[in-house]
Design a protein around this nucleic acid. Structure first.
Lengths: 192, 192
DNA sequence: GTCTATACCTTGATAGAC
DNA sequence: GTCTATCAAGGTATAGAC
């Protein structure tokens, strides 16, 4: 006695998020989205007024996902150094996805910057969440505010750069080496 | 007695390159391109069979431009350390453009990766040119091949990361600081 | 609430006069 | 070689039956 659940708004957003990640927002059409959701095209407009509304919802979802991830790292350890390692290891775990589709934050940000500037601002909040969290960890390690901010950006720079080059040049072993270097760096700057 | 020159194929490619950089390739339509070139739409197909042919030509042009830039840095100084500083200073000089439109290599690469994978491979050659040149400079500084490659990627990582974060978060002063750090790093690793 | 049919627009590309 | 007119296809969005 199986119940076939109607597709929920939440599920649509999940599917859209993946399609936007894989194909880009502008290159993903309603037809593709409808097909992936197994619903007719017209049906969308019950949940969303425009395509951009879907993008808004996707950005919201991703933002919330990031909050959850950061929370889970906070829960996992109270040691800021261990938490920072979580960040680097996430990159390592994501290697295959990064190679195929690039960084989910970086790629959408660059795309929106060219076509929907106001939405770029929105999606840049994802970066800010990560950076603010990183700043906090360096604070906890004993660094003052300005130095912490610098290190947080430095770490995020590296992450974005590694992801971009991996996506462009497909060199996995170099990606590994650069991440290993980042881990070493984290060990070096660890204060008492 | 002024002569109004007919627009050349070369000039079309220049204009297309700028439009693709500012708006993205997929988001730039023939109509926009025609308007910017002051020629009717149909006129294009005398020079190019398809839109993608224009993109090919744009990538070619940019690739050649990069070769010229690297050549000019080679000419400017025979000291590899000074040459590497040219690279960092180019980033500094490009600050305003990077903030508004992102890195011309990085943004087109990420875009093409999602929609035209075969062209991404083509445009990734631009990265390779830079990286191979960087490797060579580290070689000349006295580093062995593997270490040189690592450092070249590290430098390019930073450049891409800085550009991405500047474009996303618009923080000029942090961009300056990160570049200053890169210069320091170059001074540190300078061998005899 | 769900689906079908379709309106309306813009796109890349073509045909053919000059 | 250059330009006008137009094409077919695919996009987003809407109207209205059920």
């Amino acid at each position: 006695m199986s119940v076939v659940p109607k597709i929920s708004r939440e599920r649509i957003v999940e599917i859209a998020s993946e399609l936007f990640y894989h194909n880009g927002y502008n290159q993903t059409s309603f037809s593709q989205l409808a097909e992936a959701c197994h619903i007719p095209k017209g049906n969308f407009y019950y949940h969303f007024k425009t395509k951009q509304d879907i993008l808004d919802a996707v950005i919201d979802k991703r933002t919330n996902d990031i909050v959850s991830v950061l929370q889970s790292w906070d829960d996992e350890s109270s040691d800021p150094h261990a938490r920072l390692l979580c960040f680097v290891r996430m990159l390592k775990r994501s290697q295959d996805e990064l190679l195929r589709f690039g960084c989910p934050m970086g790629t959408i940000n660059l795309e929106l910057g060219k076509s929907q500037p106001q939405l770029q601002t929105q999606s840049a909040k994802m970066f800010e969440l990560f950076i603010n969290w990183l700043v906090l960890q360096f604070n906890l390690l004993g660094y003052e505010e300005e130095k912490s901010r610098f290190k947080a950006y430095y770490l995020m720079n590296q992450a974005q750069g590694c992801a971009t080059l991996l996506y462009s040049l497909k060199d996995k072993s170099m990606f590994d080496k650069q991440l290993a270097y980042l881990e070493d760096w984290l060990n070096t700057i660890k204060k008492s």
